[in-house]
């Protein structure tokens, strides 16, 4: 296998307290420098709670946000300029809210035609043929093409969003919480469709979600994000079954599971670290049962263990 996507030291700092001239007063490090590799045909799950930087990461990957540092390589070629049109042909994005990602004043046909027209310069005939092909692949009827987005249910709208991403013929899809706005019975339909499409078109997925069970069900590997950094990354079946990082363990223990009694996995009533005033050392230290003074001095590096799981902790399980 070769790398479809390689991130090197990618980070994003948002300026805070902008001034008319000169540098801003401070910066919020939404994503700390992180390096990740996604193999061709792999699904990499990214989990984390709100504010952990997963959406910022996703937006950088498709060129909607220019990274502060680092670079993105697709198929070995670096993508330097943050021009969504260049990105668009190689990497596409499926949005969380299927309805609001479709312009309410355009028909589905107009929405589907834009990537074919502006990314691939197809003529009208070629576009019609291609749309028919894609609609067949995502199980949508062609009669939907002349309707407007508000006429569709969430599940159907998400299929349209996926169809639009496919139309760009990118080989990598960033799926940003693609099913969290959907009902469970529809969620399974969309997840299965995504699995079929991946097989059929040889796609590579980055699947971002806050739902551990969904990520575990669809991913080959999982990266756990906390406060803008990867704290653990490894094969999906190992990361949640045998977490190494205390935060991963806390996440896994917090998920409500049928047959597990209710317990508070976290005894300390701590709040999340303040992004404007980030803690020294490990960001999870204040919530961590294993923390010692060492954790307050330096940020633990992400180290690979013998079983292919890497974690950023001085005292892993």
């Amino acid at each position: 296998m070769s790398a479809a996507l390689k991130l090197t030291d990618l980070s994003k700092t948002f300026p805070v307290g902008k001034r008319l001239f000169g540098a801003p007063k401070a910066g919020v490090k939404a994503v700390q420098p992180l390096s990740l590799t996604v193999e061709k045909g792999e699904t990499l799950g990214i989990v984390g709670e709100s504010g952990c930087g997963k959406s910022t990461l996703a937006r950088m990957l498709v060129g909607l946000l220019p990274p502060t540092t680092g670079q993105i390589e697709i198929d070995g070629a670096p993508l330097d300029n943050a021009d969504p049109a260049t990105f668009g042909q190689k990497i596409q994005y499926v949005f969380q809210d299927p309805i609001s990602s479709l312009n309410p004043r355009k028909t589905i046909r107009q929405i589907m035609e834009s990537p074919l027209r502006y990314l691939h310069g197809m003529d009208a005939k070629a576009r019609t043929a291609r749309i028919a092909e894609i609609f067949a692949a995502v199980n949508l009827r062609e009669e939907f093409l002349d309707r407007y987005p508000h006429e569709f249910s969430g599940g159907q709208a998400q299929r349209i969003g996926i169809a639009r991403a496919l139309a760009a013929e990118a080989r990598i899809l960033i799926l940003d919480e693609p099913v969290s706005a959907l009902d469970v019975s529809v969620q399974a339909q969309v997840l299965n469709l995504l699995a079929d499409l991946k097989k059929k078109f040889g796609l590579t997925y980055i699947f971002i979600s806050h739902d551990l069970a969904v990520v575990e069900a669809v991913s080959d590997r999982v990266a756990v994000l906390y406060f803008g950094s990867v704290v653990e990354v490894g094969p999906a079946d190992q990361v949640f079954a045998a977490p190494r990082h205390p935060y991963t363990k806390l996440l896994a223990d917090s998920a409500p599971v049928v047959g597990r009694p209710l317990a508070v996995p976290e005894a300390k009533e701590t709040e999340l670290p303040d992004p404007l005033n980030p803690p020294q050392g490990c960001a999870f230290r204040a919530r961590c049962p294993r923390a010692t003074e060492v954790c307050g001095v330096a940020m633990p590096p992400l180290e690979t263990h013998d079983d292919r799981v890497a974690s950023a902790c001085f005292y892993p399980y």
Binding site: L64, G88, Q89, Q92, F95, S100, S114, L119, R164, A168
Partner: peptide
């Protein structure tokens, strides 16, 4: 989001 989507469509 649909404006972002339009950007990604080139």
């Amino acid at each position: 989001e649909f404006v972002d989507a339009a950007r990604l469509c080139g």
